[in-house]
């Protein structure tokens, strides 16, 4: 499905500020894998997302989707396989446009955009149906400007927009971190439902250790641009937060330092 082969990425190469963001990452993701990603500040989690989605190109190595190399394709050409939700609730939607217009843009993901109407009656019905699944009443506010929605509502909409054309891969970059706990819980629940229903191959970066263990079928831990731990489903089920932190200290020789970490 998604393969990373010897992927490396440096920031400011050859200068005093040189920083290893990713070093020789080798990973294989099977269809339907739901992988949670944890690690300290600057471990390379966001860079990993950016290299897969095409925001950045790797310095060396290959990114393959269903066998074909895509590491040189720009982000807008990879979007037909990859849906993404950002941490910032403002990042995934266009605030001055209406809910239905935002959905219409998500609907044309990866297709050529021409002179067809963005919003039609049949699309509007589809959008309403999809919005109902979120259960927060957005289906009655199709023509409202997205800028008027709360952070939680925008993030729910972003999640729907990222997934409803069934991309093969879903990237979630701490997408609940900026929300209050009850909203974060709602978005987490929606994420679980959508991912399991559409069987999307999912990578989710999170600061919430309990969530990292509870969600998904595989957990990877990163440190200094490397994957230092890859826990399969069987072991993950019996794992506890303190075991996880212990593992990190044992392998990296330091405490898991993250100013936003949530132990669960």
């Amino acid at each position: 499905m998604l393969d990373l082969v010897n992927v490396s990425k440096l920031f400011n190469p050859g200068t005093l500020d040189e920083k290893v963001a990713l070093m020789n990452i080798n990973m294989k993701f099977s269809p339907g894998d739901f992988v949670t990603v944890i690690g300290s500040n600057g471990a390379g989690k966001s860079t990993l997302m950016n290299v897969i989605s095409g925001v950045m190109k790797p310095d060396t190595g290959e990114v393959r989707i269903e066998g074909s190399e895509i590491q040189q394709l720009p982000e807008y050409r990879r979007s037909r396989w990859i849906g993404r939700v950002f941490q910032d609730p403002m990042a995934g939607t266009a605030p001055r446009m209406s809910i239905e217009e935002n959905l219409a843009m998500a609907y044309t993901r990866g297709k050529k955009r021409g002179f067809g109407w963005g919003v039609t009656t049949s699309k509007r019905n589809l959008f309403r149906e999809q919005l109902q699944r979120l259960g927060i009443g957005l289906e009655n506010r199709l023509s409202a400007k997205v800028g008027l929605l709360s952070g939680g509502e925008r993030q729910a909409l972003s999640l729907l927009m990222a997934t409803f054309t069934k991309p093969q891969i879903l990237l979630l970059d701490e997408h609940t971190a900026a929300l209050d706990p009850s909203r974060a819980e709602l978005i987490t629940q929606l994420t679980e439902d959508i991912v399991s229903e559409l069987r999307l191959t999912t990578l989710m970066v999170t600061h919430n250790m309990e969530q990292a263990i509870r969600l998904g079928n595989r957990l990877i831990m990163m440190n200094k641009g490397r994957i230092i731990l890859d826990i399969p489903e069987e072991r993950k089920q019996s794992l506890t937060v303190s075991q996880l932190l212990g593992e990190f200290e044992r392998i990296s020789g330091q405490q898991l330092s993250d100013d936003r970490i949530v132990l669960g």
Binding site: Y76, S79, F86, E101, T108, G110, K111, R113, M161
Partner: peptide
């Protein structure tokens, strides 16, 4: 719509292709 989104949130519309 893509044109309007470019001015409104270019990162978002790039992620939609």
């Amino acid at each position: 719509l893509a044109l309007r989104a470019t001015g409104d949130n270019s990162r978002m519309i790039r992620s939609f292709g």
